[in-house]
Design a protein around this nucleic acid. Structure first.
Ligand SMILES: [Zn+2]
Ligand SMILES: [Zn+2]
Ligand SMILES: [Zn+2]
Ligand SMILES: [Zn+2]
Lengths: 143, 143
DNA sequence: TTAAAACCCTGTAGCTACTCCAGGGTCAAT
DNA sequence: ATTGACCCTGGAGTAGCTACAGGGTTTTAA
């Protein structure tokens, strides 16, 4: 199977497949006499696994760890459970901070209505004044 | 005011301040005879505004636009309202997809309990089978 | 037969918003 | 005279791709 076919089969772009090879996620494939990459079913399987992990936003480094567990000698799988737990915690943290961001932006948006001119824009003014409010207490004399 | 003082006053790192100068967010400051950067109150103000925007996750490019509105000749501010609306929409989209991600990871996590060995790990197996399930229908004969 | 289209190759640069470092120069105090 | 705290420039690194540039190969159609 050539790279274009692998790309079609997995829905992953050709450049991305070559990138996964470069960073060590996908083992180097055999080569045809003309130098083209020649993939087998193992590559297809592995690449599908990678795509599934990426769709869950698992990092390249963590996918490498998962692939090691998958293809290495059997061990205790607690590390896998822990990896998922950590990612879940990370996602939840991000959701919390994005919701905080959302409400801040909602408040900001309320400051302005239609048809104002920039010097009277409530949004600009709010950004300016809250920026000033957050500045360090310390003052710097000019001498 | 030298760069270290500006850094202290705004809470922005020195390297970051130089970066903002390089990308055009902060105007080039005057220089002291020894070549050190010499900032005025205008820079402090502008930098505080920038930090405020960044804390709302507004991109460098959009901050540049906001600064243009802030320091340019007065115009209609609808573009500003729209900018905030777009960011709000973006944030909300991201929250939605992160929640979807969260529930997927929760489901995945349920697949495995303590003390299993990697070949029996429900998480690994789930990742593998759902990866296979999502593969393109098209098959590639080996001939 | 030949020319275009479609495929493949390597290597490099670009994206975001910083952050860090190497290898210097400058200035105050000891 | 030397230490330490500053400051400078320029370049590399981060994550995960994506998009070339500048070539070679294979298939298909005129
Ligand atoms: Zn992780
Ligand atoms: Zn407005
Ligand atoms: Zn925007
Ligand atoms: Zn498990």
């Amino acid at each position: 199977m050539r790279i274009g076919q692998l790309s079609q089969a997995t829905g992953i772009g050709i450049e991305t497949i070559r990138y996964y090879e470069k960073v060590g996620l996908l083992p180097d494939p055999a080569r045809l006499p003309n130098g083209y990459r020649d993939y087998g079913p193992g590559h297809l399987d592995r690449l599908a696994f990678i795509r599934q992990c990426r769709s869950l936003d698992i990092s390249i480094a963590d996918i490498a760890r998962l692939l090691d567990f998958r293809h290495g000698s059997p061990t205790d799988c607690n590390a896998i459970n822990q990896l998922v737990d950590e990612h879940l915690a990370q996602i939840r943290t991000q959701i919390v901070s994005m919701r905080a961001l959302e409400s801040q932006l909602i408040e900001l948006r309320k400051r302005c209505s239609k048809g104002k001119r920039t010097p009277d824009c409530g949004i600009l003014n709010e950004l300016t004044t809250s920026a000033r409010g957050k500045m360090a207490i310390k003052r710097f004399p000019s001498h």
